[in-house]
């Protein structure tokens, strides 16, 4: 009889003892997961702020640009050396894939910010391998690392092109014409890269490629407009237009 059985069950019962052990294990896993989710949210917010900051490099004042890049670099370093390190140390003794979903959004946002910084700073983006080195840690003589899936790397790059699109259009707003062409071609290459990838069953990549395509279309229209408008002025002036961003301190009154 169920009721009787239930009432006779005490903490010495074999099944109950087993389950008390299970409870401990499940609670610990759950708490660990929640902790990482919270850490990831903080990382996402900070990266969004860094991206926001990086957009202000859209200036001709070289000093300001340098200052912004320096600050971004430092803050990115804090993220890898502190925030991600915390996650990595929590997961040191566990299968990281079990917790990967808990920090994937923070990681992708970080890649977006980092790659944006790299592009602005040195005009290129580093490979997964070299970025993965950031996630190798050592503490108290013990080595450990954060799991950094290549998929998150690629999806972060896809998001990054959205920021390039914003930058390209803002560039035009402030008259920074040559940057547009450069940025647009860069995104074209990334788009071509995405077109070449065969990845069965990665729905998210499809969605992001679609957004990327739309961003690219907007940038191509900006470049088209520069070209078609520039076509009406004499050739030597066109050169000025295209190269105007390189003549930082010169005054080009009367023409633009």
């Amino acid at each position: 009889k169920g009721r009787q059985v239930l009432e006779n069950i005490d903490e010495n019962n074999r099944v109950i003892k087993m389950f008390l052990g299970f409870r401990k294990e499940l609670d610990e896993k759950h708490d660990r997961y929640e902790k990482i989710v919270k850490l990831s949210r903080d990382i996402t917010i900070e990266n969004k702020r860094i991206i926001f900051l990086l957009h202000s490099t859209n200036t001709d004042i070289e000093g300001k640009r340098e200052a912004v890049l320096d600050e971004a670099c430092k803050r990115l370093k804090v993220i890898t050396d502190e925030n991600f390190k915390t996650i990595a140390s929590i997961l040191k003794d566990f299968d990281s894939y079990q917790y990967q979903k808990a920090y994937t959004s923070g990681l992708q946002e970080f890649i977006e910010a980092l790659v944006f910084y790299q592009f602005l700073h040195s005009n290129k983006i580093e490979s997964w391998e070299s970025i993965n080195k950031f996630f190798q840690y050592e503490q108290d003589g013990e080595k450990f690392s954060l799991l950094f899936p290549q998929l998150d790397f690629i999806l972060g790059i896809a998001d990054f092109t959205g920021e390039l699109m914003r930058r390209c259009i803002n560039n035009l707003g402030v008259g920074n014409v040559s940057d547009c062409f450069k940025t647009c071609n860069f995104v074209k290459d990334i788009y071509t890269g995405f077109l070449g990838i065969i990845n069965p069953g990665a729905k998210e990549m499809g969605r992001k490629t679609y957004v990327l395509k739309q961003s690219l279309a907007k940038m191509e229209l900006v470049c088209y407009n520069i070209q078609i408008r520039g076509s009406e002025i004499p050739k030597h002036m066109l050169v000025n237009v295209i190269e105007s961003s390189d003549m930082n301190t010169e005054e080009d009154e009367g023409f633009y």
């Binding site: 983006i125 580093e126 490979s127 290459d189 890269g193």
Partner: peptide, 8 residues
């Protein structure tokens, strides 16, 4: 870009 990013 292709070589460093997409091929790997």
């Amino acid at each position: 870009i292709l070589e460093n990013i997409f091929t790997p």
